[in-house]
Write a protein that binds this DNA or RNA. Structure first.
Length: 357
DNA sequence: TAGGCCATCTGGTCCT
DNA sequence: AGGACCAGATGGCCTA
């Protein structure tokens, strides 16, 4: 067994090692070329840059009177050893004023960079609000937001291209492609909550719902995951079945008949493979709240723009094409702060209304 | 405690 | 010269 493993892996390892040696030789030669300029500092830059954010503190502490000496030391030993003398324009002396200017520039640059990152983050927040499943308290990470947004765009494009509604499983699959499992659970959980026509029972932990008459052809299939082994799980609670994969950590999903396996090898898949979601109304992973905190969740439908006038916000997906009216997720008291956006995108009436306006 | 995520600082590069 | 953008490094916080 091991020998077979070695025989399979060894050639690759050897090839990688050879590549690595080759690369290092190239880099070494580059480094040697760079060694010809031992005092390669910008005129205005501080000497001996410190590591990490402590640098700023050290700079802000201010050692103006030592800077000139430090600068002298920086290039003072350039003749020592057998290194060739540095050519090019001589380095200007770091006067106290120039050091001060340099510090000021750095402080200003830091402030600009902070502003820039804040702008970027606020843009990401805006993006979070328009992708499916927005939660103020349980924000998607940046990378997950971008992935979900990409999937959302692709899904909408697919809908427009095909001109027909996908079933909810397909839709969730499109949305969750390449997402982490917690995000997948969150999105799919949001989506499933919104597909329910009504709740026959509001469970004490806020995570279990009966879905006796879902308009989607998803609930008949069993779905097994780690959550199902939890004391909260009850069979027949309408677990939404997505994909069938066995993942090492006790996750096992079952494909619906005729279901296709996720194309994780597709070029647009990036990042970790998403294990199957556990869609029995709860969240798992990072977004999964304890049964105590589940009570504080309130899923609400978030409409922006073209469908705001609609009183009912159910997902119009499903093979039957029926609108699952009455399942307004705002009627689910234990959940808060999670907004569903996917429900405003797929309605073709809404899309048509949008395009005809 | 490890790993994920994030904010911040920093230096390099490119552009105006 | 200065600003925008980027990527690497670092440390803090949180969660499993």
């Amino acid at each position: 067994m091991l020998s077979r493993l070695f025989s399979e892996v060894l050639p690759d390892v050897q090839r990688l090692a050879a590549d690595w040696v080759e690369d290092n030789e190239v880099e070494d030669s580059k480094a040697k070329e760079d060694d010809h300029e031992p005092c390669h500092l910008e005129d205005d830059e501080l000497d001996e840059p410190l590591e990490g954010s402590s640098r700023a503190e050290s700079e802000m502490a201010g050692d103006d009177d030592e800077d000139e000496e430090a600068e002298e030391e920086e290039c003072g030993d350039e003749n020592s050893g057998d290194k060739p003398k540095k050519r090019g324009p001589k380095k200007r002396k770091m006067t106290a004023a120039r050091v001060e200017r340099s510090k000021m520039r750095r402080v200003k640059a830091n402030a600009r960079e902070r502003m820039r990152m804040h702008d970027l983050n606020s843009a990401l927040d805006n993006l979070r609000k328009v992708v499916p499943c927005y939660s103020k308290t349980q924000k998607l990470s940046k990378i997950e937001t971008l992935r979900l947004a990409k999937n959302y765009i692709l899904a909408l494009g697919e809908i427009l291209r095909n001109g027909k509604r996908p079933d909810v499983v397909t839709y969730v699959q499109m949305l969750c492609k390449g997402l982490s499992q917690p995000t997948t659970n969150l999105v799919a959980g949001c989506l499933q909550l919104n597909t329910r026509n009504f709740l026959t029972e509001q469970c004490s932990d806020g995570a279990r719902f009966h879905m006796p008459s879902s308009p989607f052809s998803v609930h008949p299939y069993s779905y097994r995951c780690s959550r199902l082994s939890s004391p909260h799980y009850q069979p027949g609670t309408g677990a939404l079945n997505l994909r069938s994969h066995s993942y090492g950590s006790g996750y096992e999903a079952v494909y619906p008949p005729g279901g296709t396996s996720p194309d994780y090898s597709s070029p647009d898949y990036e990042g970790q493979h998403s294990p199957p979601v556990c869609l029995n109304g709860g969240l798992s992973g990072r977004q999964q709240e304890s049964s105590e905190t589940d009570r504080n969740y309130h899923y609400s439908v978030h409409y922006s723009g073209l469908t705001t006038s609609r009183p009912s916000h159910s997902i119009p997906f499903g093979p039957s094409g029926t609108r699952s009216g009455g399942a307004h997720s705002e009627n689910i008291p234990p959940f808060h702060d999670v907004h569903l956006h996917h429900d405003r995108a797929p309605p073709y009436e809404d899309l048509n209304a949008f395009f005809h306006n």
